[in-house]
Design a protein around this nucleic acid. Sequence first.
RNA 1: CGGGGCGUAGCACAGCCUGGUAGUGCGCUCGCUUUGGGAGCGAGAGGCCGCAAGUUCGAAUCUUGCCGCCCCGACCA
Length: 489
Amino acid sequence: MAKALPKRSENYSEWYNEIVKRADLAENSAVRGCMVIKPYGYAIWEKMQRALDDMFKATGHVNAYFPLFVPKSFLEKEEEHAEGFAKECAVVTHYRLKTDGKGGLMVDPNAKLDEELIIRPTSETVIWNTYKNWIQSWRDLPLLINQWCNIVRWEMRTRLFLRTTEFLWQEGHTAHATEQEAVEETERMLGVYATFAEEWIALPVRKGLKSPNERFAGAVETYCIEALMQDGKALQSGTSHFLGQNFAKSFDVKFVNKENEQEFAWATSWGVSTRLMGALIMAHSDDQGLVLPPKLAPIQVVIIPIYKSPEDLATISTKVDPIVEELKAAGISVKYDDSDNQRSGWKFAEYELKGVPVRLGLGMRDIEAGTIEVARRDNLTKESRPIEGLVDHIKQLLDEIQANIYQRALAFREANTFRVDTWDEFKDQIEKGGFLLAHWDGTPETEEKIKDETKATIRCIPLDAPAEDGECVYSGAPSGGRVIFARAY
RNA sequence: CGGGGCGUAGCACAGCCUGGUAGUGCGCUCGCUUUGGGAGCGAGAGGCCGCAAGUUCGAAUCUUGCCGCCCCGACCA
């Protein structure tokens, strides 16, 4: 018997790593900090990409592609941006190798680049350098572009999907004629991310603003969605930045407005990454493995035959084939696993590990009775029901599972969101995890001290927070509303 | 870059302290029996014990150096 997964409650981090590995999502590569996304994991990512891309298109965006390399001089143009990213950049300094005469290779010292190239940690600079040529008049605006690509951030420590040296993401970069339009775009895309998280990943998120400390380097305002994982830690799942005119000024992107005046363009940028895969895994999975929301499952329904002889299998297959066809015709992705190299019990466990939302089991006993076994991954229940009307039932069931895992995650978050009013309560509760709603005096100093003492950061200032007078949980200074504190990934 | 740990079969590990023929489980191959929740029994195949030097009659084991990986911190989506 294969080794059981570590228990979620005992060693969350090991449990997470095992699921990633055993469900065939990804593995560490031989390259430092980089990950190999395996076909099954990539299939889920592709579904995310497709859904997001449709949402971007529906909001007027188009895709394009910009270079991987950022000349150093580009990166240094926006001062805060440069400072924020300087510490985590991979730098290309040479363009050629040569043989060293001992069977190895060495960097050719004669092939030093005049200007170093940074492997993009994000593309604001390359893109705004290009936008300079694309934007002349208010008629060129808004410019609504997205790119799907890889980026590199040289982090000290990495974790599969949550933080890898290289990762996949999309980054939207838009230019607008007015501040208001840009702010609206920033908020619109935050809304798109929240909708995607909730409707597709079944992940409830809190929308909010980052505190100045946590703001994106070079942004005027950073909006984010924050989710709560099952171990009580927060995961920043997407960000949308209002960049003001910072990049337009740095890259001299001016347009002539309707009043015939020169004006700097207003910018936004927004991104989500393969980190969403980490969110998906951590939010829903259990001690049996991954739990996939039906909308993102590469295989929504798996059918497993239970048989003793090849003759039985043939009989079962005759019964299964039309079911497969009907499910496909209904737009449901289905796999009939009639492979003969594993026993049915093994297959049950395997597809549970991989998070397949619905499993159908069909054996000779069912054939005599005209029934089929329907098992749900989300709550691990199963029932025997007539084959009659199966497809409609499954359609409904998939919707129900999607809704159920969302509700479950929401209930978890609500049960782990606490209003905290004293510093003692704060210190006590932060050890147990969860979102802490507390008053904050609005100063970076207080935020920093809280972080030093408890490792908790302000995840966001919620957009829907009601105004509420109170006293800062740390300093006692007056505060106009509660913010969300948590320990974060 | 600091603090800890680990490199032995495809994978997970024991053996090391106290030097003496290379082990276990999973997986793999073959056979028989099984098959409604990760099958059982039997027989096999598979190793430069991370690399290098040293000590010794003899090193997986002791010593030194190097390389690699993991965990914890600093960094961070």
